[in-house]
């Protein structure tokens, strides 16, 4: 295939991935790597490099819109970025030392986990006040109340060490696999630290770009970021996610989330099998 043809194909696939990722909240990055490796036989190192860069683009683009709404907690995000950036550096260093097959297997497992967590019902039980450690670290805030005219709701964080550890793991996976690890970040905040949903999802999105930037420098230095491949991936995912965010208001997301989670689970099994067979 010519470069022009493959670029058009990659751009179209990335557009669809970014669109569905934004619509379902699963993020576009998770399907880019299987798409490139299984579909187009791109080396997994080039694939995770391109995917990581597209993650920075979508996260920063969406975060710009979210911070204005007043849900994003910049202090909580910054504090937890201590864990995610350190993890991301460790993950990127690890990526160079693990064989491609092993990375594919871990990737498949992470995909299955994120598809499962996306479908599982999550009870929301935000804490109105934080525990002593969280208060000392000022991990608290208030977010807009439900409905117009409602008073702002105060909230505080619980179980900070557990949340911090989960964030470290999210960082490692992000650096190792070139994904945003949004599902794990949200889990750390709304389930472990008992923060409100909207605060968790928007703060997670806000953190994804910084986490990814921590490993992107190492990827670039190692030669994982190929301009010819990353160009259509980054532009496609960015355009797709912007369109997806627009369409979100009109779409029936429930059915779509099931379908997309099914697609992700199928890709996960393919990745694991290919990794075990040494076919990547």
């Amino acid at each position: 295939m010519t470069i022009l043809g493959s670029s058009a194909l990659v751009a179209a696939g990335s557009l669809a991935a970014g669109f569905l990722g934004a619509l379902t909240g699963l993020g576009g990055g998770v399907v880019i790597v299987p798409l490139l490796t299984l579909g187009l036989h791109v080396d997994i190192r080039y694939a995770i490099g391109a995917s990581l860069v597209s993650v920075i683009a979508t996260s920063s683009g969406a975060a710009a819109a979210y911070v204005r709404e007043g849900y994003t907690n910049i202090r909580i995000g910054m504090f937890l970025e201590l864990a995610t950036t350190l993890g991301a550096i460790a993950g990127a260093v690890l990526a160079a030392r693990l064989p491609a097959g092993a990375i594919a297997v871990v990737f498949g497992a992470a995909l299955l986990l994120s598809a499962w967590m996306n479908l599982r019902p999550r009870p929301e039980h935000p804490a109105a006040s934080g525990d002593p450690l969280a208060r000392r670290l000022r991990l608290e805030g208030s977010c807009p109340g439900a409905g117009p005219g409602a008073p702002p709701r105060a909230y505080g964080a619980r179980r900070v060490p557990l949340g911090f550890a989960l964030m470290g793991l999210a960082g490692i996976l992000s650096g190792l696999l070139g994904i945003g690890s949004g599902a794990l970040k949200v889990l750390a905040m709304d389930q472990a630290m008992r923060l409100p949903f909207k605060v968790s999802t928007t703060t997670s999105n806000f953190m994804i770009g910084v986490t990814a930037a921590a490993s992107a420098g190492i990827y670039l230095d190692r030669g994982y970021i190929d301009p010819g491949l990353t160009m259509p991936v980054m532009l496609g995912v960015l355009a797709g996610s912007l369109l997806g965010a627009r369409a979100l208001i009109a779409a029936r997301v429930r059915v779509l989330r099931w379908v997309f989670s099914g697609v992700i689970a199928a890709l996960a099994v393919e990745m694991i099998l290919a990794g075990l067979r040494g076919g990547l």
């Binding site: 860069v53 920075i56 683009a57 996260s59 920063s60 770009g209 910084v210 990814a212 930037a213 992107a216 420098g217 670039l220 970021i225 301009p227 990353t230 980054m234």
Partner: peptide
């Protein structure tokens, strides 16, 4: 891409 990586920084 370098500008993009520098944005969160």
């Amino acid at each position: 891409l370098l500008v993009l990586i520098a944005t969160p920084v």
